[in-house]
């Protein structure tokens, strides 16, 4: 019974995936990709990885879909997709891909016995950190370096997007995200939803210490609300030269590094937390990170400066 449901799920996923590749119109492909994101979020739920399911729901259903659909809207007048190349090449590449897939499938079908797991090790030291959500403990204690570097990746990604601005526009506002036709319903939604969304975002960040959720999920929700306001034309993207904005971007990673370095004096070294104070410190870092993530994601979607800075 249960496996039959999983089988249905897999079929739906593969349908969406194949359509993502084969759809002729690029917007159809993006819609199929959004569908795939929703389905994958359910799969992560099925695999009992609720933190990941939340991330996938926020990113796959929200942020990535928005980026891609916006690209479609701006691409349409400019350039058409080419069709897939000739059949012979398709077959050759198809065979290659099938071989890769088959190799991967063979690996999956011969799992090691017993399956290796770090879960016991994670559990053994959770007390030391004082948080109840194991994923957050991994992200902010055991593998904090990865999480820190990943935030640096985000900042560099933002710089990379900004770098695409023409020289003349440097420091100015990104292109407006306004929807094509101003619509009363959208304005209404953009007035009602953000307060609730902000609340949910904060809740996800706060909850992340002990329950599924966390900085990235919360930050993405906050970013989505900001983007909604921008799309409903209730606020334009800010000028990219504004130092206040820049500091919001930097505050999360900077605080994380500062806390990490403070570990040299107050605890066992870089990115270790003083015993007993780990939880408040981690929550503080998470709040700052969520703020930075929200601003970075919003700005990345908004794109490079497209107007001269105001005088």
């Amino acid at each position: 019974m249960s496996l039959a449901v999983d089988l249905v799920m897999v079929l739906l996923i593969l349908t969406a995936a194949v359509w993502t590749i084969l759809a002729r119109d690029r917007r159809d492909a993006v819609i199929a990709f959004i569908v795939l994101g929703l389905l994958l979020s359910l799969v992560w739920m099925r695999l009992l990885a609720v933190d990941v399911a939340l991330t996938e729901a926020a990113v796959g259903g929200g942020a990535t879909g928005l980026v891609l659909l916006r690209a479609c809207a701006r691409l349409l007048p400019v350039e058409a997709d080419g069709a897939l190349p000739g059949l012979r090449l398709q077959v050759a590449v198809g065979v290659l891909c099938a071989v890769v897939g088959a190799c991967l499938a063979a690996v999956i079908l011969s799992p090691p016995e017993p399956a290796p797991s770090l879960a016991p090790a994670v559990a053994a030291h959770m007390e030391d950190v004082g948080l109840k959500n194991p994923v957050t403990v991994v992200l902010l204690a055991y593998r904090a370096l990865d999480t820190l570097l990943e935030k640096v990746v985000l900042v560099l990604g933002l710089i990379g997007v900004w770098a695409l601005a023409p020289d003349l526009f440097w420091g100015g506002r990104p292109a407006s995200l306004r929807a094509a036709v101003p619509s009363g319903t959208l304005t209404f939604l953009a007035r009602v939803l953000p307060p609730i969304g902000v609340l949910i975002g904060i809740y996800l960040v706060w909850n992340g210490a002990d329950h599924p959720g966390g900085t990235f999920q919360g930050g993405t929700v906050l970013a989505a609300m900001w983007l909604l306001v921008m799309m409903a034309d209730l606020g334009d993207p800010p000028e990219t030269r504004a130092l206040r904005l820049r500091r919001l971007v930097a505050v999360g990673p900077a605080l994380f590094i500062a806390v990490g370095l403070a570990g040299f004096g107050m605890a066992d070294g870089f990115l270790s937390y003083p015993p007993g104070y780990a939880k408040p410190i981690i929550v503080a870092v998470e709040v700052a990170l969520a703020l930075s993530i929200a601003v970075i994601l919003g700005l990345m979607v908004a794109g490079p400066a497209a107007k001269e800075p105001d005088q």
Binding site: V155, I159, R247, A250, I257, G260
Partner: peptide, 18 residues
Amino acid sequence: VLALMLPVVGMLGIFALG
């Protein structure tokens, strides 16, 4: 740790200070 973090701090400094 310094070797990893120094450049990051410099990068964030330029970013935040203008």
